[in-house]
Design a protein around this nucleic acid. Structure first.
Lengths: 134, 134
DNA sequence: CCTGGGAACTCTCCATCGGTAAGTAGCCAC
DNA sequence: GTGGCTACTTACCGATGGAGAGTTCCCAGG
């Protein structure tokens, strides 16, 4: 675990606007559709099982849920615990690192909730301007 | 159609965890790889031309840059201005609504910058645990 | 012994998406 | 009329995401 004192130095050496910079990959990963929702769910609800998550994130395929969880586990954001019972029980929860993402992520979801109406109106106006149907 | 007067009420009636809810689409759009970078660039640098953006977001294809800008324009986040000169000059800038997204987005990019090292370390540890090569 | 059932995947097939690169439009200088 | 500039648009194609069936592990029931 690094100390936080040298954060400024650490951040100054990466640039997400540069192709090939790892920070762009990371931004892409945490900005991913299902990652945002999985992290949000685990943040609000705490520990969850695979099928619970699948139900709550309505519309996610099992394949994508597995892939997303694996990626988040690899990045140290989610902890995966297998309980060797019958049938097997697998629980997912945020790591301390994962919890530090809750704030920024909540910012995003709250913005989208708060400005839904404006965006919807803008879309309608745009479609009228450009003559789109529906 | 919901009324806009009661923003707090308005946000409570949408749920990005529900399939088909427009807020999920919106979250997906603003959480998009290129959208984050385009909005970030326009936020930091102000008005930019097409080719300027393409240079700064190294690795973006013209197709994706066009698509992203169009989507952001449709959502009322970006203003597109065509100057009928020769050759034509097109400028992009954030709308007031787009500016309200700067904060949440900066939160995300800063998090990714600040925690790069931890994530990179977690990935290495995971790859060692699971026996991946590279 | 064989079937069935629950949880968490894993695999296969197919449609859509993103990247690459070449083509288009409008207009002016040569 | 050929080339050049800017901002796209289009065609092609490999990679990615969704739908759904199959797999593994173990135990209960007939």
């Amino acid at each position: 675990m690094r100390t936080v004192e040298t954060v400024t130095d650490a951040t100054s050496s990466w640039d997400p606007y540069e192709q090939g910079c790892p920070s762009r990959d990371l931004l892409d990963r945490i900005g991913d559709k299902w990652s945002i929702l999985v992290l949000g769910e685990l943040g609000e609800h705490g520990t969850s099982r695979f099928t619970e998550l699948r139900k709550r994130l309505s519309g996610v395929s099992e394949k994508m849920l597995t892939q997303t969880l694996r990626a988040l586990e690899r990045d140290g954001l989610v902890l995966r615990t297998v309980h060797p019972e019958v049938p097997v029980r697998v629980e997912y929860e945020l790591t301390p690192l994962g919890h530090t993402l809750r704030g920024p992520l909540r910012g995003l979801t709250q913005w989208s909730l708060q400005h839904m109406a404006e965006v919807l109106a803008a879309r309608e106006a745009y479609d009228v301007r450009t003559g789109q149907t529906g």
